[in-house]
Nucleic acid binder design. Structure first.
Length: 287
DNA sequence: ATCCAGGAGGGCC
DNA sequence: GGCCCTCATGGA
């Protein structure tokens, strides 16, 4: 049965390529210019942007409404967010104007948790590769675009019977025991998505840090990308360099940067972080 | 080749 | 608390 395409036009503040390539997501494959295969919520999406048109291939309106609209955060008014941030800090203008089409995806908690545990001390292409390997070996086959096959990220239950050795074969290295710990704590509800979502930032971070391999940075990434806590401000090596370059003279501690960001960017820290991270990384700022 | 990557744990003081 | 070393793997 043919499903047909679902097409949006004139969505403001949204660029598919920027949104996927800005470093928040590791589970997609570029097909062509502004054309991607994206995996989330057990589905494969073939999406393409042409100027103002966004084409969701083989997608029903129902699937769009139930999954992709929220996944791409399309219900949110980004012009209001931008206005708020610019009022707080005009220094963000260049990064924001350049990376104008970034939206913060609402990704799945468990996949984000595991993906960012993997991310530690790794470069983005390699993180994507490991996520793809784990999905290919343990996730469900979802279909292909051209010759490229796509697989869903395995559930926590599925991952609970993967051995340490098998995880290491996915090139996770010293992170393998961390992943095992995360899987067991999510499976036995020591870590519970609903409770974390409802909790405030401090409690949430404290809970996440019970997991081995989750510290302040990864905890903040999980809160921002997987728990819809948009005030979270993850500080990695890039953001540290970028913030030092833009707002300080020379090196400062991460604690100092965190306090500064909280005061300066407030409830929308996560958006500011994402514009700065993507722009600064593209510009190789401070390197 | 040496250094570094969307860091964090552990030992030491 | 802070400082230093280590962890596995690949790319520059």
């Amino acid at each position: 049965m043919e499903k047909g395409n679902y097409v949006l036009n004139s969505v403001e503040d949204f660029d598919v390529g920027q949104t996927l390539e800005c470093g928040q997501c590791f589970h997609f494959k570029k097909i062509d210019e502004n054309e991607y295969g994206v995996v989330a919520f057990g589905k494969l999406l073939h999406i393409k942007q042409e100027n103002n048109f966004i084409i969701f291939y083989d997608t029903t309106e129902e699937e769009y409404e139930n999954i992709w609209k929220n996944y791409f955060d399309l219900d949110r008014n980004y012009s209001e967010i931008k206005k708020y941030l610019l009022k707080k800090d005009n220094k963000l203008k260049l990064a924001m104007d350049t990376m104008w089409g970034v939206r913060i995806l609402n990704q799945e908690f468990f996949e984000i948790l595991i993906s960012f545990i993997i991310s530690q001390n790794k470069q983005i292409p390699h993180i994507k590769q490991i996520v793809a390997t784990i999905s290919r070996k343990y996730g469900n086959y979802l279909g292909k675009i051209g010759e490229e096959e796509f697989f869903g990220f395995p559930s926590c239950e599925r991952m609970s019977d993967i051995s340490l050795e098998d995880l290491k074969e996915c090139k996770t290295g010293f992170r393998a025991p961390y992943i095992m710990d995360a899987v067991s704590k999510v499976c036995d509800k020591t870590i519970d998505e609903a409770i974390l979502k409802a909790a405030n930032m401090n409690v949430c971070l404290e809970n996440l840090q019970q997991i081995k391999g989750v510290g302040e940075k990864i905890g903040n990434c999980v809160m921002l990308f997987g728990l819809e806590k948009r005030e979270a401000f993850p500080i990695d090596v890039w953001i540290k360099r970028i913030m030092e370059f833009m707002y300080f003279e020379g090196e400062v501690s991460k604690d100092e940067i965190a306090a500064f960001a909280k005061k300066r960017f407030g409830k929308y820290g996560g958006y500011a972080q994402q514009y700065l991270f993507y722009y600064g990384r593209e510009m190789k700022m401070g390197k």
